[in-house]
Design a protein around this nucleic acid. Structure first.
Length: 574
DNA sequence: GCCGTTTTCGGCCCGACTGTTTTCAGTCG
């Protein structure tokens, strides 16, 4: 069983217990364990076999027993029982903004609302505002938020789709007769959210591959079954379409299924202008009579007189015109990244020690890593006071003395306070190598207020990087009302760096704001903001976002060697 | 629920914001 599924089970268990009114600390223990499992760098099953599971902080005897039950039976009786007791819709209601476990339960008890539909109807009938503690404003918010959710229905985070893809590909590749297997569609283009997952397989016996996929344990039901395509709904909630083709058809189909629609349309026009025909069946010359043999995707672009366009750029945003002039920028590559400039250690709310994080960074081939824990005002994250920060920096100095080929940078993620100003004095910030400034409060302030807060941070001479500029959580929370252009303009003026936060549920800056930053000439840092070792791997999502915003290595400061990076960090204020 | 070694019981993480309130409960980061 996948670690992710254990995580979900534990989270669901905590949510259901919370609706029933469980002990706060017990719930927290389940959620901590869930988060820990998600962040484990190896399969839980292996840890258990090697008797190392209870050594993991946050996993004791009881939670281990639950995990073992999941591993051996695939189910958790306690969870199954709660699921029978509590309508599933309550979890969806509980996930609405402004609604927690208590309110979800209250609405269920008072109005009988056990699904989003029923709740929305009750709200429309003005039955919510009659309840004690709830008023007209809440009622309207409920209606609105349920609408938003509906419109967004069926959209999944890229991170989830990619995890599922990795698991399915592993399975497909060991099936007999399978040649290549690759993801296509929007997942291959690294769009931040996707509607489904598309996989293309080459096989001499497509039927057999599709049968196997339809019977895969992740498949819940078969949505569609044709000659060479099977579409299944997975237990993860993501629809997956697997298409099988002969090895000769693989390359072209892979290209065609990758899209985007707009990109392909532009290519079709171009083909026509060159006396060719491009369609789902292939590339043809002599007015469609003769198919051109395609060996690689590069061939297709070359035949159309274009530079090769990487999947991340295939969005019909002007890349075809650029490729026809052979002016595509050289894109950044994950291998070019030399360090991560925003991670959290267990000094604040991170899971790993500074030594562990540094070791992981070395394994990844980095030559530096900035430890940027939260600052004091963020109590829930055990933000650091100036005193603890000094202790941490002393420790970092001591660790650095032992390692000559790797450098831990002394950093801080300083809070941009709700009333303006930064959470730490200049004298403290001065002692840091890297200062990331981010907003964690006052999310609902108007554009002027929140923008001026951030501008103040940009203007502070000690600030190097602005973290997750808009604060959005994809699919959960809109970003702040910040005026992105004004901030980018100021960042350019003051030589400040903007972060691409690589977390798949943030991707902030997003691809469009990355483009904008590039136009303003603002330097970018691609950071993970990891709170555990595993999430340090999410950098590739940030890199993909950079590529979708057409960034090259020269635009990104953490492609620099340490001396050059330090030079920039020291000379940032202009 | 987890954790600890001067604890096997009694701590665990707090404070702002919001909408609804006459003094607070629930949510959220």
């Amino acid at each position: 069983m996948h670690n992710m599924e254990i995580t979900w089970s534990l989270y669901e268990l905590a949510d259901l217990l919370e609706i029933r009114g469980g002990d706060f600390f017990k719930l927290r223990a389940y959620r901590n364990a869930a988060r820990t499992v998600a962040g484990l760098p190896e399969p839980v099953e292996m840890l258990y076999r090697e008797k190392r599971l209870t050594a993991v902080p946050g996993i004791g005897k009881n939670i281990q027993a639950k995990i073992v039950e999941l591993l051996t039976t695939g189910k958790l009786e306690k969870l199954e029982k709660l699921r029978r007791e509590i309508p599933r819709g309550l979890l969806e209601i509980m996930a609405l903004p402004g609604v927690g476990a208590k309110r979800a339960r209250f609405l269920y008890e008072q109005l009988g609302a056990s699904s989003l539909d029923e709740l929305q109807q009750a709200a429309r009938d003005h039955r919510v505002r009659t309840l004690p503690g709830l008023g007209a404003k809440t009622e309207l918010e409920l209606i609105r938020n349920i609408d938003i959710l509906r419109k967004r229905g069926g959209i999944f985070l890229l991170g989830l789709a990619r995890q599922l893809a990795a698991e399915l590909l592993e399975f497909i590749k060991i099936l007999p007769g399978v040649g290549r297997a690759e993801v296509t569609g929007s997942v291959r283009r690294w769009r931040e959210t996707v509607r489904d997952l598309n996989i293309l397989v080459s096989s001499g016996d497509p039927g057999q591959v599709l049968e196997a996929m339809a019977a895969h344990p992740r498949a819940r039901e078969i949505i569609q079954r044709q000659q060479d395509i099977v579409k299944v709904m997975t237990w993860w909630g993501i629809p997956v379409e697997i298409a099988a083709v002969s090895p000769e058809r693989f390359t072209f189909t892979w290209f065609w299924h990758t899209g985007s629609k707009k990109h392909l349309e532009e290519l079709q026009e171009l083909a026509q202008a060159r006396g060719m025909e491009l369609g789902s069946e292939g590339l043809f010359k002599d007015s469609g009579r003769m198919e051109i043999n395609i060996k690689s995707e590069e061939d297709i672009y070359t035949l159309l007189g274009l530079q090769y366009v990487p999947p991340e750029m295939r969005e019909g945003r002007g890349e075809v015109a650029l490729a026809s002039r052979h002016e595509l920028p050289e894109l950044l590559d994950t291998g070019m990244i030399k360090g991560d400039l925003h991670v959290h250690s267990n000094w604040s709310d991170g899971g790993g020690s500074i030594e562990e994080l540094a070791a992981r960074a070395r394994e990844k081939g980095y030559s530096y890593l900035a430890i940027t824990d939260h600052s004091q005002s963020l109590k829930i994250a055990r933000g650091l006071t100036p005193e603890r920060l000094r202790e941490q920096y002393d420790l970092i100095d001591r660790i650095n003395e032992k390692n000559k080929d790797f450098t831990i940078l002394k950093g801080i993620e300083v809070d941009i306070l709700a009333q303006g100003g930064l959470d730490l004095q200049d004298e403290v910030l001065e002692t840091a190598d890297v200062v990331v400034a981010s907003v964690h409060s006052g999310f609902k302030q108007d554009a002027e207020t929140i923008t001026s807060r951030i501008l103040q941070a940009v203007e502070n001479r000690h600030v190097d990087i602005i973290g997750h500029l808009t604060g959005r959580m994809i699919g959960q929370r809109e970003g702040y009302a910040v005026d992105v252009q004004r901030v980018l303009e100021a960042a350019a003026r003051h030589g400040k760096i903007m972060e691409i936060n690589s977390s798949p549920d943030r991707l902030d800056l997003n691809d469009e704001n990355v483009s904008l930053a590039r136009e303003y000439g603002v330097s970018i840092a691609i950071n993970t903001d990891a709170h555990d070792l595993k999430r340090m791997d999410e950098l590739e999502y940030g890199v993909a976002t950079a590529r979708r915003g057409w960034l090259g290595p020269g635009d990104v400061v953490n492609t620099l060697d340490l001396p050059d990076l330090l030079e920039i960090l020291r000379n940032k204020y202009k």
